[in-house]
Design a protein around this nucleic acid. Structure first.
Lengths: 187, 187
DNA sequence: GAAGGCTATTGATAAAAATCAAAAAATCAG
DNA sequence: CTGATTTTTTGATTTTTATCAATAGCCTTC
């Protein structure tokens, strides 16, 4: 439980009482390696804090799967579009390693926001950070060559290359797995 | 002023008093066609509601400019990463048509959030919508061919093709202007 | 209405990356 | 440990798109 408290603290110095309200709603969950947190067409009604683990979010395009994002220990993960709208998800999220999560349901979170504006404030700050990093990812993917994208990934998130397969990383970087393999050979 | 009230109403049935607080901080601004709302390296400290007009957000990559987004009457616009972090913007936003805006400063907005949690709630809902549409844009740009991206744009936002130049649309769709011109000739 | 400056189209070529195919290496199960 | 399966690398070819270059169209504005 300590990890999540530290993360929350970083965003905002929120009253102890509010933190306790939030923590009181968290459910501990374990997802074995290879299993899914959320499957395509389901409604994502849990927001998960990854206390320990590594997950991949992807969707299917003609029988192949395409990686949208990887998330790590210390990050929140959900199929955000589905969680926000409470409509079916078009993405699937799978555990690439055994995951130890703390989860809160959409309903509980909305109830908390109604009761305690500090928590909505905190959530707003977290959402803003996720928005900024999504925007950066979009721009990043837009104006770099295949090789530059790979080099930047090594620089910023080397653990992804360690933990995910070439094919999974390749679709995340928007290239074929053969192309990524050749880039790896060339450096 | 009516347009913005209607938009706010759609997100949340917020008390009249809160709406008035918010509206009280809005400044009316006109930006002539061709001028900029925010320039690269400046800190974006205004969130703008486009009461009427059309803008383009872009950044420079080697002397060329690359379009990030277009925004229309009825939408909010800011260099979000800069507005959120209050750090210099890497994007420039220009008016492609004469714009009539209502603006609120970052400071005023934060002050309002401290005083009135209904407004932070409203902002959270708006932010969520923008997050979802950004995510959709990312996925959209990732798994469609050049031609499919253009056809989808015609389908979903035909006004962009009317109002922006081929070069501006081409960089938005992640292709050269020659490629876009050929696609247009082929359909 | 002609000159000049943008914008768009068209053509030829080059570069980048995808695809198809096979071999090599790594991982897993029994 | 060993055979089977999966993943990764390597090679040959094709496709897609970018780049370079020239032409055509179209607004301005004098």
């Amino acid at each position: 439980m300590e990890a999540i408290l530290n993360i929350l603290q970083k965003f905002s110095n929120i009253p102890q009482e509010s933190v306790e309200r939030f923590v009181g709603k968290l459910q501990e969950t374990n997802i074995p390696k290879g299993e899914t947190l959320i499957r395509e067409r389901e409604v994502c009604n849990q927001l998960s804090f990854i206390n320990k683990g590594f997950v991949r979010s992807f969707y299917f395009k003609d029988k192949k799967d395409i990686t949208i994002s990887f998330s790590m220990t210390g990050e929140f993960i959900a199929s955000m579009a589905s969680f926000i709208s409470q409509k079916p998800s078009y993405e699937t999220i799978e555990a690439l390693e055994h995951c130890h999560l703390y989860q809160i349901s959409h309903q509980d979170l909305m109830d908390l926001f109604g009761k305690d504006s500090h928590l909505e404030h905190l959530y707003r700050l977290i959402l803003e950070q996720y928005y900024v990093s999504l925007e950066e990812h979009l721009i990043f993917s837009k104006f770099k060559t295949a090789k530059e994208r790979y080099l930047e990934l090594i620089e910023t998130k080397p653990y992804i290359i360690q933990k995910a397969s070439v094919g999974q990383v390749a679709s995340y970087l928007d290239m074929s797995l053969e192309t990524l393999s050749r880039i790896r050979a060339s450096i």
